[in-house]
Amino acid sequence: MKKYFSFFRLRFSMGLQYRAAALAGIATQAFWGGLEILMFRAFYRADPLAFPMSLESTSAYIWLQQAFLALFMGWVMENEIFASIQSGNIVYELCRPIGLYRMLFVRSLAYRLSRAVLRCFPILLMAAFLPSPYGIALPPSPAAGMLFLLGMVLGLFVTVAFTMLIYSLTFFTISPAGIRMVALSALEILSGSILPIPFFPKGLQGVLEILPFAAMQNVPLRIYSGDISGNEAIRALSLQAFWLVVLVGTGVILMSRASKKVTLQGG
C-alpha cells in the first residue's frame, strides 16, 4: 500500500508544479461557469415552467461542475501514457513490482486530484459569494452533504475506471485516436457535462440514468443541489458502486490481456 501512496505523492506534486496553469484554469472555469449560467437564465426567463430543475440547483450544478472539472471530464487523460503504450515503452513499467492496472489507476487519480485541488476552492469561494439563484449554497442537509461526498468519491472512481478502459483498448487497436474520440464524445454528452441529464427529453432521461456515464458527475452534483434526495439518492449511489465494480473488473481483465500481448509481441 505504501508504494502506491508514495507513487501517488510523486504524481500529485508533479501536478502541483503548474501554478500559472492553475490560475489560468481558475479564470477559464469561472468564466465558463458564468456564461453557462447566463445561458440557462435566458432559457429560464423564456419559459420557467419548462425548466426541469430549479435555477438554484442548476447554478449549483454548474459551479460544482466547473470547480471539479478535472475530476470528471473525460479528456483529462495523459498523452504520455498513450504515447508510451503506442511506442511499446509501457513494457518497462511491467518490470516494476507493481500491477500495471493499479499503477495507472493511482496515477490517473493523482493527476486528476492535483489538477482539481488547486482550482476548486477559488471557484467554490467565488460562487458562494454570488447572489442567490446564481451562486452556490450549502447542501440542503448534513446527510445530503455526506451522500454528496460519497457520490464524489464513487463518481471520480467510475470516471477513472472508464478512462482505464480507453487506455487498455489502446493496446489493441491501430487507431487509438479514433476510439478515444468516440468514447470521449459519448462520455461528454451522456454524462451530463454538456447538458445536465434532467434537461434531456423524458424518455431519454430514463435510459441515461442507468448508464455508467450517469454514475460519474451526475449523481454527486445533483445530490448536492438537492435535485436527488432520500431513497433516490441511495439508489443512485448503489448504481455508482455497481458500475465501479463492473468497469474495474472489465478493465483489469483487458489490461492483463494487454500486458500479455505486449510481453509476447514486444509492443
Binding site: F43, A46, D47, A50, P52, S185, E188, I189, I194, L195, F199, F200, P201
Partner: peptide
C-alpha cells in the same frame, strides 16, 4: 455534434 445535440435537446423543451 455534441454541441448541436445540446441545442437540439434544449429546444425540445423550450420554443
Amino acid at each position: 455534434f455534441n454541441v448541436f445535440l445540446g441545442i437540439y435537446f434544449m429546444f425540445q423543451r423550450f420554443h
